[in-house]
Design a protein around this nucleic acid. Structure first.
Lengths: 171, 171
DNA sequence: TAGACGTAGA
DNA sequence: TCTACGTCTA
């Protein structure tokens, strides 16, 4: 797949379909699906408001998200993630990516969702574009360490292919 | 470019030509030019001997290499590199990648060389495959911090395209 | 300058 | 588990 897209946009990326699969976050960047090569939440500024463009839910990094049929619970960023040189546990704050997701709820703008899962053979991950979602709700929780965590509830937009994503994402 | 190559080999990679250019080290991995997605020296075990397969000389990370026409001086790995959570300065050792390069000299096996340079627009780097080199010499030096550094002298193999690489690598 | 749901291999 | 010439944005 040789498409290259350097423009960050909200909504579908031309040429990319639900179920398309990638091997690296850097590929998501080249393709224009998700430009933040490390971060889970990508966003852009519309005027002076941050709006989320895409999120990556990836296995094996301390974040715990949930997928149930067309609803997902996505963990906010910051605070509680294991990091070699950073032992402190802090409250997550409603800034940058978390703020962008909250704004996306207010503005009812769609968010591209990419799901990264470990391969069965344990050789890296695969990232599958699972479609557009709308942020339906968010709230604060206390994490295991007592710190504040944000949780975002997203629902898959209905006007999309209804392929069985569990199959398309399965190894 | 959609070629994918998962087999690590010594020498030229089929389908890849001198001057071919890539945007990410992960692309070098997909293509089979250089499998170590972070490290500068990639190698393989032939029997119980490590032999270098490829090296990446990349700008802007504390290592200082030199390119002069068909000769390059490549810095060994370890010891003196700035790293956020690692302040200690240590002697480089003749192990792993450094040992592999030393063995490649003894065995006269070619090493693929990739040159990573910052883009003029400062948006990332570009990696150019500049061809096969032979390790001609290596020695120990003292670095600015007094620690031992390895330096490897490599000479470009003569039976290759003699395009002006300075042009092919220029922004 | 440092943070961020990175990756493969020893 | 840790290292390794990573890579983008704020």
């Amino acid at each position: 797949r040789m498409q290259v897209n350097t423009e960050k946009i909200i909504g579908p990326v031309p040429g990319i379909e639900v179920g398309d699969e990638f091997q690296y976050k850097s590929e998501l960047n080249l393709i224009g699906l998700h430009f933040d090569i490390m971060g889970g939440i990508d966003y852009m500024n519309i005027g002076d408001m941050k709006l989320a463009t895409s999120i990556v839910s990836s296995e094996g990094n301390g974040y715990i998200d949930r997928f149930n049929s067309d609803v997902m619970i996505y963990s906010g960023q910051g605070g509680n993630v294991k990091s070699k040189d950073k032992k402190v546990i802090e409250d997550q704050k409603l800034v940058t990516g978390n703020l962008a997701l909250a704004n996306s709820m207010k503005e009812k703008t769609p968010v591209r969702v990419i799901r990264g899962r470990k391969r069965l053979d344990q050789r890296g991950k695969r990232y599958v574009y699972v479609g557009l979602y709308l942020v339906e709700d968010y709230w604060r929780e206390r994490g295991p360490g007592g710190n504040v965590l944000f949780k975002f509830k997203l629902r898959r937009a209905s006007d999309q292919l209804s392929d069985d994503l569990d199959i398309s994402v399965r190894d």
